[in-house]
Amino acid sequence: MAILRKDLIRELRTREMIISMILFVLLAMVIFHYAFSVKEDADLTYFTGGMLWVTFIFAMLLGLNRSFAQEKDERCLDGLLLCPVDRVTIFLAKTAGNLVFLLIIQVVAVPVFTLFFVSRSYVGDLVPFLIVMLLADVGICALGTLLATISMNTRSRDLLLPIIFLPLIVPVLIAATGATTLIFAEGAGFGDLLARVLFLLGFDAVFLVAAYGTYDFAIGE
């Protein structure tokens, strides 16, 4: 808890990360717009789910790198490791911190992307949409935190993270993109999404357990 609070306070004081992330999201939107508007009056509704998740995952890469780069540069991590807390607690706090970070990005990105790209209203599906998003977020953050811990302890640091993170996160991307596209484009009921929701739930459970088991080793001695 204290670690999470520390990260949040630090973030609120400096604001550097949040502001650059919001800009990142808006710029991503502009870039996607020009990248995908290949035809006059093209309807991008079908692509919005994909765009969103691509944005989230790449933003997360940046966020993950930063969340550990700070610790490493100021040698805070050593201090954390000396604390009489379980390593797993550090993992959970870091994951929660990254989750907050991702949620802030999403609070900005989802309305903006919806406004510019989605041609139909999906207010009726808001609850399943939020469930899908939250479940996918947990998976992304848990796995991302574990892998970022490893990559921070290596020579190439932030270069390594995408290489090990992206192939592992593909299942989440598939499920989340599929579900959001269904919601945006076709107004899927909860029944249509059930398989994907269960899948995301399973993914989260599996990787939380896996991270729980291996984090001691990942963070190093």
Binding site: L146, L147, V170, I174, F217, A218, G220
Partner: peptide, 25 residues
């Protein structure tokens, strides 16, 4: 060796999940 082992465990767990996910398509 430690990092490689952790990654190897995570990767192997991910393989069936990936297969399952690609089946969605």
């Amino acid at each position: 060796a430690t990092f490689a082992a952790v990654f190897s465990i995570i990767a192997f767990i991910d393989v069936p999940i990936t297969f399952f996910a690609t089946r969605f398509l």
